[in-house]
């Protein structure tokens, strides 16, 4: 009986672990889609997937830490800007992290 209970408990634990990992993977897929959607709001100026043309700053391949630091400086005013100090204030910190992660994973334009 004890053996059975322990066996059952182990099975339940294993199930819980599997469930947690499935949930984590579903969550990460959702985050990836959300990151993609959020980053696409930047594309009008910074190019599709961050591959900018002309005088706009390319974001594709920029490290997430560097981009987040830059965005924080726009927000604080430490980095002067024409427009980014106004735009960055429209996004939450978790959204900016997703955006930065997405651009870091993109290939820079050749």
């Amino acid at each position: 009986m004890i053996h059975t209970v322990r066996h059952g408990a182990l099975a339940a634990l294993a199930c819980a672990g599997l469930l947690a990992s499935t949930q984590a993977s579903a969550q990460s897929a959702q985050d990836a889609t959300l990151a993609r959607n959020l980053a696409a709001t930047c594309a009008n100026c910074h190019g599709t997937n961050g591959q900018a043309r002309g005088d706009m700053k390319p974001l594709a391949g920029m490290s997430a830490d560097k981009l987040l630091a830059l965005l924080a400086d726009y927000r604080s005013g430490a980095q002067p800007a024409t427009i980014m100090h106004q735009i960055v204030k429209g996004y939450t910190e978790p959204q900016l992290k997703l955006i930065a992660g997405y651009f870091a994973a993109q290939k820079p334009k050749q």
Partner: peptide, 30 residues
């Protein structure tokens, strides 16, 4: 609209003149 975000230029300027044309190239490509 997110309170505290957005806004307009401080003054007309030529830097944004270049950005305007780059904006067009980027959005047309997008």
């Amino acid at each position: 609209p997110v309170p505290g975000s957005g806004g307009v230029s401080v003054a007309a300027n030529q830097i944004e003149g270049r950005y305007a044309l780059s904006w067009a190239e980027n959005i047309w490509a997008d």
